[in-house]
Design a protein around this nucleic acid. Structure first.
Lengths: 350, 350
DNA sequence: TTGTAAGCGTTATCAA
DNA sequence: TTGATAACGCTTACAA
C-alpha cells in the first residue's frame, strides 16, 4: 500500500491533489486558503479528502515565492548557552508558534562578523522580521534590515542609530543605581563593577547608573573600580585578583551577568575569599540557580517573560499593521532581590 | 542617492543584475553558482560589480523551489530554557553555521501535540534534516519524516520504531548504574530515584541502571523508591515529601535532571533537610551552576560538546552522502563527578 | 462556482 | 562563452 520507506517518492503537489479530486489547481488552492474565493461545499469536501488521501503538504517555498511573504522570523542572540538568552529564546519560540511563525535561530557569539553573517542569512531567507540582541558594532547592517522593509525589534540592547527598530529592554541605569545604592546603604564605600563591554548599551547604562549612585551618595567613583569584561570572559578572574590586590581592596562588587558571576565565584573560592564576609556581590539577572548558590546571590531580577512577550508582541504588531515611522521603545523595570551575598558593614559613614 | 528608508523598494532580482551588467540571467546565475558552467573572467567581474552596486541578494525561496533543496535544518527539543538543550542548541547552531545551514528551532514542551505541529512546520518548510529529542509518544510522525526522505538524527533520546534515524546519546543505563553504585559504595542502601517520564528512553534506561545496581549490589529495589516526574515538574517537591515521610526514609536520591534538582533542593531547604547530612544527592547533567550550589552537587557529566558535534556530523554525513539503510547509533559515555552532595554512611554493610 | 494561465525568482538545458 | 526558455509549486486575476 505505502511505498517502501527508502523510495523518496516524488513529493505530491497541488496538481496531484487536483487530479485526484477531479478539479483544477485553482480550486485546491482556494480550499487551502479559505477566504480567497468561493468553493462549493461538496467540492471542498472532495478536495479535503484527496489531500488526506495523498498526504499532501503545501510547499512553503513555493508559497512564499508567489506571495512574497514568509512565515518565519529570525532570532539573533549572542549565545543561547547563556541562560538569559535561552529563556528569551524559549519564550520567543513559543509565542511565535502561536502566531504560526517559524523561528530561525542564529547566534553572534558577540562577534560582529558572525552577526553580519547571521543577518545576511536571515535577509536571504526573507524573514518577515527579526528579534535581535545586537553586538553593538554593526549599526549599518541593521539599518539595511529596516531599509529593506524587514521588521526589527531589538531586545535587551539598543542601537542609537537604527531609528526604525523597536526596542524592548530594562532600565539598566536605574537597576545599576539600585544595586549600588543597596551596597552603599549596607555601609559599603569601595564598590567595583564588572560590566559587560561598553560597546553594548547595557554595559554603558549599568556603568552610568553605578557612577551616578556613587557620586550622588558620596562614595568614591574610582576608575580602577570599573572593569569592562566580555560577557563570557573566562579570564574575568583576573579582575577579581586586581580588585583584591588594591591597596585598599573593594568590599563589594556589582557583576553584570550570571556567567561572569559564576567565574568570579569560582575564583573567589579558589582564593578562599568568603562571600559576603570578605566581599559582597550583587549580580545582574536572576537565573534559577542564583538562589541555590552558596551563598544565595542578591540579584537584579529582570522581567524575562515580559521582555520576551513584549518583543514578540511588538514584532507581530509591525507584521500585522502599518509599521510606524519610528521605533517604539519599551523600558521594563528590574527589581532587586535581596538574598545573602551582601554583608552589612558597620564602620559608619566615612 | 539611496531610497528613503520607508520606501520598501521592490527587491532587486537576478534580472535586474543581468540588465545592469548587460548579460542574460543565465550568466548571472552561473557566476552565483560557480562550477555550473563557464563564464568569461571579464563578464564575471562586471556581474560581480553589478551585484554589489545593486546590493543584490539571492532569494532563498526561489532557489529552493527550483533546486528542490533547502539550506535549513530543524532542531526539535523539549524546551530551550533547559540548560541541557540550550547547550545543545548553541552547539548545533554554531556547527550548522559552518556548514551554511540555517536552524529552525522548535520546542515540544514535552507535549506530543506540539511535537506534531513542530514536525509539520518543518516538513512544510522542507528542511533538509532534523535533529530532535522526541517526546517518545509520536513514533508515527517521525517515521513519516524518514519516509519523506528527510534526514533524521535523534539526540539524547531514541525511538525504537524509527529504524532509519541516527541516534546519538549517552549510556544512561551505565550512568545510572554508576551513580547508584557510588551511593552504595558510600554506605547507602535506601536509595530513591526521581526519573524523567518512562515514556522517554532516557527515563527508562536510568531506572534500569538504577535497578540493576541495587539488585547486583545487594540493596533494596523498592517500588516506592522510584518516582516518575515530568522533567520540569514543579510539583516534584511532593516526591521529596513522600520520600522523607517513609517509615524508613531514604538516605539518598538520584535526580534525573538539573531542573528537577533545583526544585528538589528548594524543597529540602524549606524542610530544613540538610544535604548531604540528611539526604545525599546525585544529579544527572553538569550544568555550570551545580558546582556553585550549596553544597556543590555530585553529578553525572554528559559530554555535551561531543553529543552536539556528533549529531551535526551525522546529519551532515546523511546530507552529503548516500544515507544508509539503517540508522547509526552512537553511545557516548558519561562520567561521575564527585563533589559534596553525597555523605558517607558508616553503618557497615547491612 | 470553477477553470485557465500568468508569474513569483531562480536554475539548468539546449542552441547559438 | 553566452542567451533563450522551460520548469519548480504555488497564488490569483480573470474568463467561462
Amino acid at each position: 500500500m505505502t511505498d517502501p520507506p527508502q523510495a523518496k517518492r516524488r513529493a505530491v503537489t497541488i496538481k496531484d491533489v487536483a487530479r485526484h479530486a477531479g478539479v483544477s489547481q485553482g480550486v485546491v488552492s482556494r480550499v487551502l486558503n479559505p477566504g480567497i474565493g468561493p468553493v462549493a461545499p461538496a467540492t471542498r469536501e472532495r478536495v479535503l479528502e484527496s489531500i488526506k488521501a495523498l498526504r499532501y503538504r503545501p510547499h512553503t517555498a513555493a508559497r512564499e515565492l508567489k506571495s512574497q511573504k514568509t512565515s518565519t522570523i529570525g532570532l539573533v542572540v549572542a549565545d543561547v548557552a547563556n541562560e538569559f538568552f535561552a529563556r528569551l529564546a524559549d519564550h520567543v519560540v513559543r509565542a511565535a508558534r502561536s502566531l504560526d511563525l517559524g523561528v530561525l535561530l542564529t547566534t553572534t557569539q558577540e562577534d560582529p562578523a558572525l552577526e553580519v553573517g547571521s543577518v545576511e542569512m536571515l535577509m536571504d531567507k526573507r524573514v518577515r522580521g527579526i528579534i535581535a540582541a545586537p553586538t553593538g558594532r554593526n549599526s549599518a547592517i541593521w539599518r539595511e534590515v529596516t531599509d529593506m522593509g524587514t521588521q526589527l525589534v531589538f531586545v535587551d540592547r539598543t542601537l542609537a542609530d537604527v531609528p526604525l527598530a523597536d526596542v524592548v529592554g530594562v532600565d539598566n541605569e536605574a537597576a545599576a543605581f539600585d544595586a549600588t545604592r543597596h551596597l552603599i546603604d549596607r555601609g559599603h564605600r569601595r564598590i567595583a563593577i564588572i560590566s559587560g563591554p561598553l560597546s553594548i548599551s547595557t554595559g554603558r547604562e549599568r556603568v552610568a547608573g553605578y557612577r551616578r549612585a556613587l557620586e550622588q551618595l558620596g562614595a568614591e567613583p574610582l576608575d580602577e573600580f570599573v572593569f569592562e569584561a566580555d560577557f563570557r570572559d573566562p579570564t574575568v578572574g583576573g579582575a577579581v585578583d586586581a580588585l583584591l590586590a588594591l591597596e585598599a581592596p573593594v568590599t563589594a562588587v556589582v557583576v553584570s551577568n550570571t556567567a561572569l558571576a559564576a567565574t568570579v565565584t569560582r575564583r573567589l573560592r579558589a582564593l578562599e575569599v568568603a562571600i559576603p564576609d570578605d566581599l559582597s556581590i550583587v549580580v545582574f539577572h536572576d537565573a534559577p540557580w542564583t538562589a541555590l548558590a552558596m551563598p544565595a546571590f542578591t540579584v537584579i531580577r529582570h522581567p524575562m517573560d515580559a521582555i520576551a512577550d513584549t518583543a514578540v508582541r511588538l514584532l507581530n504588531q509591525r507584521l500585522t499593521t502599518d509599521p510606524p515611522q519610528h521605533g517604539e521603545h519599551v523600558r521594563l523595570t528590574s527589581t532587586l532581590v535581596e538574598r545573602a551575598s551582601v554583608a552589612t558593614l558597620n564602620r559608619g559613614a566615612r
